[in-house]
Simulated scan of single mutants.
Amino acid sequence: MEPQHMTVDIPVGTLDVLEWRAIGAERGTVLALHGFPESPWEWEAVAGMLTRQGLRVVAPAQRGYSTGARPEDVGEYAIEHLSADALAVVDQLGLESVHVLGHDWGASVAWWLAGHHPERVTSLTVVSVPHLTEFARALESDPDQRARSAYFALFRQEGKAEDVLLEDGARRLREMFDEHVSEELVDRHLELVGSRAGLTGALNWYRAMRRYDLPAISVPTTYLWGRDDPAIGRTGAEATASRMTGEYRFVPLSATGHWIPEQAPDVVAAEVLDRVSSDAAPA
């Protein structure tokens, strides 16, 4: 099913949003937040499975990715603004709360929403990135995680990172997907981040990054992590459980790397559906 297109106004411009509508009676709405260097299309396979089970999936091209929302000031990419954008989408839908699904940087925004706005998050499914406090602790104390995140130093260099990642037809951006994502889907992602303006908007998320300290998470949460993820090590992934006060499920996936929504969309969809079904079950 082809998604519908909508727009959402935010203080710095307009977000482009994809909406996959539920087939049959609607059971709820999933707000799906993409990562780097991707686009809302990373959720296409997952959304196809969820809509057949009665869920609507709404996936914005986030700040910096949407062509109408690329502020120049790096400070405009602080996570408080990114989470406010996500809530603006929920508000436009006329909903008090939604099921939140996030991958990579989208997972970071999802964690922030659940930590600071739990009343807006019915359930949380996060993919790849651990609880932000534990990720920060791993970056500070775990040599393995520091090595895995060494690329942050390049990404935070304004101008140089764009030059390196865009040269030779954006070869290095394409190589990040390591053949785990179809060429057609990579091309769709690069429609947003394959230009200098789009890539700068996406990299500004890294440039605005700071140490994030979150409260414990009280909403029902599932965290999926690929054991072969080159960017996220075991330390933060396993320590995430210590930050949960609500019902929690940790799903480590063997023979799976960073691009879980594309590599294992059936697993992602099943975990979201399990959260939705648990929320709908009588107390």
Rank of each mutant, 00 (worst) to 15 (best):
M6G: 15
V8I: 11
I10T: 11
L15I: 07
D16N: 11
L18R: 10
A22N: 01
I23S: 15
I23P: 00
G24Y: 08
A32T: 04
H34C: 05
H34D: 09
G35S: 10
F36D: 07
P37S: 03
P40D: 08
W41Y: 14
W41A: 15
E42R: 13
E42D: 14
G48I: 03
L50V: 06
T51I: 15
Q53L: 02
Q53W: 03
G54P: 03
R56Y: 05
V58K: 04
A59I: 05
A59E: 02
A59H: 05
P60L: 05
Q62F: 00
T67S: 14
A69T: 10
P71A: 02
E72Q: 15
E76A: 11
Y77K: 05
A78G: 13
H81F: 06
A86V: 11
D91S: 13
G94L: 02
L95F: 03
S97K: 07
V100K: 07
L101H: 13
L101N: 07
G102A: 00
G102R: 00
A110Q: 00
A110W: 03
W111C: 06
L113S: 04
A114S: 02
A114T: 05
R120V: 09
H131L: 03
H131C: 04
P143H: 15
R146H: 00
R146V: 14
R146W: 11
A147Q: 09
A153F: 15
L154M: 11
F155R: 03
F155Y: 13
E158S: 14
V164T: 06
V164F: 14
L165D: 05
R172Y: 14
M176I: 15
H180S: 15
S182H: 04
S182F: 05
L185P: 06
V186W: 03
L192A: 15
G194E: 08
R196L: 07
R196Q: 08
A197W: 11
N204A: 12
N204Y: 05
M209S: 13
M209D: 05
M209C: 14
Y212I: 01
I217P: 00
I217H: 03
I217S: 09
S218A: 10
T222M: 01
Y223K: 06
W225V: 10
W225S: 10
D228H: 01
D228M: 02
R234S: 09
G236W: 01
A239R: 12
A241I: 09
M244N: 10
G246E: 02
Y248R: 07
Y248K: 02
R249G: 08
V251R: 04
L253T: 00
T256C: 07
G257K: 08
W259T: 09
P261Y: 00
E262Y: 06
D266T: 12
D266A: 14
V267P: 05
V268T: 02
E271F: 02
D274P: 00
S278R: 15
A283L: 12
